[in-house]
Protein backbone atom coordinates (compact mmCIF):
# COMPACT_ATOMS: atom_id res chain seq x y z
CA UNK A 1 0.00 0.00 0.00
CA UNK A 2 2.61 2.51 0.94
CA UNK A 3 4.31 4.44 -1.81
CA UNK A 4 7.57 6.39 -1.82
CA UNK A 5 5.81 9.52 -0.70
CA UNK A 6 3.32 7.58 1.40
CA UNK A 7 -0.41 7.89 1.05
CA UNK A 8 -1.78 11.22 2.08
CA UNK A 9 -3.67 11.18 5.32
CA UNK A 10 -6.36 13.75 4.80
CA UNK A 11 -7.34 16.35 7.32
CA UNK A 12 -9.38 14.73 10.01
CA UNK A 13 -10.93 17.76 11.55
CA UNK A 14 -14.22 17.31 9.72
CA UNK A 15 -14.58 13.61 10.34
CA UNK A 16 -15.64 13.67 13.95
CA UNK A 17 -17.99 16.54 13.22
CA UNK A 18 -19.67 14.57 10.44
CA UNK A 19 -19.94 11.54 12.68
CA UNK A 20 -21.47 13.66 15.38
CA UNK A 21 -24.20 14.91 13.08
CA UNK A 22 -25.24 11.49 11.95
CA UNK A 23 -25.33 9.43 15.04
CA UNK A 24 -28.29 8.74 17.25
CA UNK A 25 -25.72 8.53 20.07
CA UNK A 26 -24.60 12.09 19.40
CA UNK A 27 -26.68 13.43 22.24
CA UNK A 28 -25.04 11.13 24.79
CA UNK A 29 -22.55 12.83 27.08
CA UNK A 30 -18.90 12.57 26.16
CA UNK A 31 -17.16 10.10 28.45
CA UNK A 32 -13.62 10.16 27.11
CA UNK A 33 -12.24 13.17 25.30
CA UNK A 34 -8.71 12.84 23.90
CA UNK A 35 -7.28 16.12 22.71
CA UNK A 36 -4.20 16.36 20.48
CA UNK A 37 -2.62 13.36 22.09
CA UNK A 38 0.96 12.47 21.18
CA UNK A 39 2.72 9.49 22.67
CA UNK A 40 6.41 8.65 22.55
CA UNK A 41 8.41 5.52 23.21
CA UNK A 42 11.75 7.24 23.79
CA UNK A 43 12.26 9.34 20.66
CA UNK A 44 9.76 7.43 18.58
CA UNK A 45 6.37 9.03 18.22
CA UNK A 46 3.83 6.20 18.37
CA UNK A 47 0.70 8.35 18.40
CA UNK A 48 0.34 11.54 16.46
CA UNK A 49 -2.14 14.22 17.36
CA UNK A 50 -5.05 11.99 18.25
CA UNK A 51 -8.30 13.77 19.01
CA UNK A 52 -11.41 11.74 19.59
CA UNK A 53 -14.56 11.97 21.67
CA UNK A 54 -15.98 8.72 22.96
CA UNK A 55 -19.54 8.88 24.21
CA UNK A 56 -21.09 7.15 27.17
CA UNK A 57 -22.64 3.67 26.99
CA UNK A 58 -21.61 2.83 23.49
CA UNK A 59 -19.05 0.37 22.18
CA UNK A 60 -16.16 1.88 20.27
CA UNK A 61 -13.80 -0.35 18.33
CA UNK A 62 -10.23 0.54 17.43
CA UNK A 63 -9.05 -1.16 14.25
CA UNK A 64 -5.92 -0.95 12.14
CA UNK A 65 -2.92 -3.00 11.08
CA UNK A 66 -0.32 -4.20 13.58
CA UNK A 67 1.76 -1.39 14.96
CA UNK A 68 -0.77 1.31 14.04
CA UNK A 69 -1.05 2.52 17.64
CA UNK A 70 -4.50 1.22 18.54
CA UNK A 71 -3.36 -0.69 21.65
CA UNK A 72 -1.01 2.11 22.65
CA UNK A 73 -3.88 4.57 22.46
CA UNK A 74 -6.16 2.28 24.46
CA UNK A 75 -3.49 2.09 27.16
CA UNK A 76 -3.21 5.86 27.37
CA UNK A 77 -6.86 5.95 28.44
CA UNK A 78 -6.11 4.56 31.89
CA UNK A 79 -2.40 5.45 31.97
CA UNK A 80 -1.36 1.83 31.63
CA UNK A 81 1.62 3.00 29.55
CA UNK A 82 3.02 4.80 32.59
CA UNK A 83 4.59 1.55 33.72
CA UNK A 84 6.73 1.38 30.56
CA UNK A 85 10.02 3.27 31.11
CA UNK A 86 10.94 6.01 28.66
CA UNK A 87 7.44 6.83 27.53
CA UNK A 88 5.99 10.30 27.36
CA UNK A 89 2.57 11.80 26.70
CA UNK A 90 1.62 15.17 25.27
CA UNK A 91 -1.91 16.48 25.02
CA UNK A 92 -4.90 15.70 27.17
CA UNK A 93 -7.23 12.85 27.91
CA UNK A 94 -10.35 13.99 29.72
CA UNK A 95 -12.56 11.47 31.42
CA UNK A 96 -15.75 13.09 32.69
CA UNK A 97 -14.07 16.42 32.01
CA UNK A 98 -11.06 15.69 34.23
CA UNK A 99 -7.61 15.50 32.63
CA UNK A 100 -6.24 12.12 33.67
CA UNK A 101 -2.71 13.35 32.98
CA UNK A 102 -3.25 16.43 35.16
CA UNK A 103 -1.54 16.94 38.50
CA UNK A 104 -2.87 15.12 41.54
CA UNK A 105 -4.63 12.35 39.65
CA UNK A 106 -4.90 9.12 41.62
CA UNK A 107 -3.79 6.57 39.05
CA UNK A 108 -5.09 3.62 41.08
CA UNK A 109 -8.53 5.21 41.24
CA UNK A 110 -8.31 5.94 37.51
CA UNK A 111 -7.61 2.30 36.72
CA UNK A 112 -10.49 1.30 38.91
CA UNK A 113 -12.73 3.64 36.95
CA UNK A 114 -11.37 2.45 33.60
CA UNK A 115 -10.88 -1.29 33.99
CA UNK A 116 -8.87 -3.27 31.52
CA UNK A 117 -9.16 -6.71 29.99
CA UNK A 118 -6.16 -8.06 28.12
CA UNK A 119 -5.63 -10.32 25.14
CA UNK A 120 -4.34 -13.17 27.23
CA UNK A 121 -6.54 -13.93 30.18
CA UNK A 122 -4.52 -13.50 33.34
CA UNK A 123 -6.38 -14.89 36.33
CA UNK A 124 -4.47 -14.96 39.60
CA UNK A 125 -3.47 -18.43 40.81
CA UNK A 126 -6.29 -18.31 43.30
CA UNK A 127 -9.87 -19.54 43.52
CA UNK A 128 -12.61 -18.21 41.27
CA UNK A 129 -14.08 -16.34 44.22
CA UNK A 130 -10.80 -14.80 45.31
CA UNK A 131 -10.04 -13.60 41.79
CA UNK A 132 -13.23 -11.56 41.64
CA UNK A 133 -12.97 -10.49 45.29
CA UNK A 134 -9.36 -9.39 44.91
CA UNK A 135 -9.96 -5.79 43.85
CA UNK A 136 -12.77 -5.41 46.37
CA UNK A 137 -10.51 -6.56 49.20
CA UNK A 138 -7.47 -4.46 48.40
CA UNK A 139 -9.64 -1.40 47.88
CA UNK A 140 -11.66 -2.07 51.04
CA UNK A 141 -14.84 -2.00 48.98
CA UNK A 142 -16.83 -4.54 50.99
CA UNK A 143 -17.45 -4.19 54.68
CA UNK A 144 -18.28 -7.80 55.47
CA UNK A 145 -18.24 -11.29 54.03
CA UNK A 146 -21.83 -11.27 52.82
CA UNK A 147 -21.42 -7.95 51.00
CA UNK A 148 -18.27 -9.33 49.42
CA UNK A 149 -20.07 -12.50 48.34
CA UNK A 150 -22.92 -10.41 46.94
CA UNK A 151 -20.56 -8.28 44.86
CA UNK A 152 -18.71 -11.35 43.59
CA UNK A 153 -21.97 -12.96 42.54
CA UNK A 154 -23.21 -9.78 40.88
CA UNK A 155 -19.96 -9.44 38.91
CA UNK A 156 -19.96 -13.07 37.81
CA UNK A 157 -23.56 -12.70 36.66
CA UNK A 158 -22.73 -9.56 34.72
CA UNK A 159 -19.91 -11.45 33.04
CA UNK A 160 -22.32 -14.28 32.12
CA UNK A 161 -20.24 -16.74 34.14
CA UNK A 162 -22.26 -17.29 37.31
CA UNK A 163 -24.26 -20.28 36.15
CA UNK A 164 -21.11 -22.08 35.10
CA UNK A 165 -19.10 -21.48 38.28
CA UNK A 166 -21.57 -21.01 41.13
CA UNK A 167 -20.95 -24.54 42.41
CA UNK A 168 -17.19 -24.31 42.25
CA UNK A 169 -16.28 -20.88 43.47
CA UNK A 170 -13.49 -22.37 45.54
CA UNK A 171 -11.87 -24.18 42.63
CA UNK A 172 -8.73 -22.75 41.12
CA UNK A 173 -9.37 -20.23 38.38
CA UNK A 174 -6.53 -21.81 36.42
CA UNK A 175 -8.61 -24.96 35.95
CA UNK A 176 -11.19 -23.09 33.87
CA UNK A 177 -11.33 -23.03 30.06
CA UNK A 178 -9.73 -20.12 28.19
CA UNK A 179 -13.09 -18.53 27.47
CA UNK A 180 -14.17 -18.87 31.10
CA UNK A 181 -10.88 -17.40 32.30
CA UNK A 182 -11.40 -14.41 30.04
CA UNK A 183 -14.93 -13.87 31.36
CA UNK A 184 -13.53 -14.24 34.87
CA UNK A 185 -11.09 -11.42 34.11
CA UNK A 186 -14.03 -9.35 32.90
CA UNK A 187 -15.90 -10.16 36.13
CA UNK A 188 -12.81 -9.15 38.09
CA UNK A 189 -12.68 -5.83 36.25
CA UNK A 190 -16.41 -5.26 36.81
CA UNK A 191 -16.26 -6.06 40.54
CA UNK A 192 -14.72 -2.71 41.45
CA UNK A 193 -17.55 -0.99 39.57
CA UNK A 194 -15.72 0.82 36.82
CA UNK A 195 -17.67 2.87 34.32
CA UNK A 196 -15.28 2.29 31.44
CA UNK A 197 -14.12 -1.08 30.18
CA UNK A 198 -11.00 -1.12 28.01
CA UNK A 199 -10.58 -4.39 26.15
CA UNK A 200 -7.40 -5.19 24.30
CA UNK A 201 -8.08 -8.00 21.82
CA UNK A 202 -10.17 -9.82 24.42
CA UNK A 203 -11.17 -12.69 22.14
CA UNK A 204 -8.16 -13.18 19.93
CA UNK A 205 -6.96 -16.24 21.85
CA UNK A 206 -10.39 -17.85 22.02
CA UNK A 207 -12.27 -20.33 19.84
CA UNK A 208 -15.35 -19.15 17.87
CA UNK A 209 -17.90 -20.20 20.51
CA UNK A 210 -16.01 -18.51 23.34
CA UNK A 211 -15.52 -15.48 21.08
CA UNK A 212 -19.24 -15.31 20.46
CA UNK A 213 -19.91 -15.34 24.20
CA UNK A 214 -17.51 -12.47 24.74
CA UNK A 215 -19.17 -10.53 21.92
CA UNK A 216 -22.61 -11.15 23.42
CA UNK A 217 -21.26 -9.97 26.73
CA UNK A 218 -19.90 -6.77 25.23
CA UNK A 219 -23.31 -6.16 23.67
CA UNK A 220 -25.04 -6.60 27.04
CA UNK A 221 -22.49 -4.66 29.08
CA UNK A 222 -22.75 -1.49 27.05
CA UNK A 223 -26.05 -0.74 28.76
CA UNK A 224 -24.07 -0.02 31.91
CA UNK A 225 -20.53 0.73 30.70
CA UNK A 226 -18.62 2.69 28.14
CA UNK A 227 -16.61 0.12 26.26
CA UNK A 228 -13.56 0.52 24.07
CA UNK A 229 -12.33 -2.59 22.33
CA UNK A 230 -9.16 -3.05 20.33
CA UNK A 231 -9.41 -5.77 17.75
CA UNK A 232 -7.41 -6.91 14.77
CA UNK A 233 -10.53 -8.70 13.60
CA UNK A 234 -12.51 -6.31 11.45
CA UNK A 235 -15.57 -8.54 11.40
CA UNK A 236 -15.61 -8.48 15.17
CA UNK A 237 -15.45 -4.69 15.17
CA UNK A 238 -18.34 -4.64 12.69
CA UNK A 239 -20.43 -7.01 14.80
CA UNK A 240 -19.97 -5.54 18.25
CA UNK A 241 -19.30 -1.84 18.00
CA UNK A 242 -21.41 1.26 17.51
CA UNK A 243 -18.46 3.44 16.54
CA UNK A 244 -15.19 2.50 14.91
CA UNK A 245 -11.88 4.32 14.84
CA UNK A 246 -9.37 3.35 12.18
CA UNK A 247 -5.71 3.92 13.06
CA UNK A 248 -2.82 3.88 10.67
CA UNK A 249 0.83 4.65 11.39
CA UNK A 250 0.01 6.23 14.72
CA UNK A 251 -2.70 8.48 13.33
CA UNK A 252 -6.44 8.36 13.62
CA UNK A 253 -7.54 8.22 10.02
CA UNK A 254 -11.27 8.01 10.48
CA UNK A 255 -13.73 7.81 13.34
CA UNK A 256 -17.39 7.32 12.59
CA UNK A 257 -20.42 5.17 13.08
CA UNK A 258 -19.54 1.53 12.50
CA UNK A 259 -22.11 1.03 9.77
CA UNK A 260 -20.69 4.07 7.98
CA UNK A 261 -17.10 2.84 8.29
CA UNK A 262 -18.02 -0.55 6.86
CA UNK A 263 -20.42 0.54 4.13
CA UNK A 264 -19.23 3.94 3.01
CA UNK A 265 -16.09 5.20 4.71
CA UNK A 266 -15.12 8.79 4.05
CA UNK A 267 -11.40 8.16 3.65
CA UNK A 268 -9.80 6.18 0.84
CA UNK A 269 -7.33 4.69 3.30
CA UNK A 270 -10.14 3.31 5.44
CA UNK A 271 -11.83 1.89 2.36
CA UNK A 272 -8.59 0.16 1.34
CA UNK A 273 -8.18 -1.32 4.81
CA UNK A 274 -11.74 -2.57 5.35
CA UNK A 275 -11.83 -4.09 1.87
CA UNK A 276 -8.60 -5.95 2.59
CA UNK A 277 -6.42 -4.11 0.08
CA UNK A 278 -3.73 -3.67 2.70
CA UNK A 279 -2.98 -4.49 6.32
Amino acid sequence: MSTAAGPTVPSLSGVAARAGQQTPAADRPVKIDAQHLNFYYGDTRALEDISVRIRRNIVTAFIGPSGCGKSTFLRTLNRMNDIIPGTRVEGKVLIDDTDIYGPGVDVVALRRQAGMVFQKSNPFPKSVFDNVAYGLRINGMASNRSELAGRVEESLKQAALWDEVKDRLDDSALAMSGGQQQRLCIARALAVRPDILLMDEPASALDPIATQRIEELVYDLKKAYTIVIVTHNMQQAARVSDYTAFFWLGRLVEYDRTDKIFTNPSEKLTEDYVTGRFG
Binding site: Q235, A238, R239, T258, D259, F262, T263
Partner: peptide, 9 residues
Protein backbone atom coordinates in the same frame (compact mmCIF):
# COMPACT_ATOMS: atom_id res chain seq x y z
CA UNK B 1 -30.21 -5.53 4.60
CA UNK B 2 -27.21 -3.58 3.41
CA UNK B 3 -26.00 -2.97 6.95
CA UNK B 4 -26.60 -6.58 8.01
CA UNK B 5 -24.57 -7.85 5.07
CA UNK B 6 -21.75 -5.42 5.76
CA UNK B 7 -21.54 -5.82 9.51
CA UNK B 8 -22.31 -9.49 10.08
CA UNK B 9 -21.13 -11.29 6.94
Amino acid sequence: CFTLLALYQ
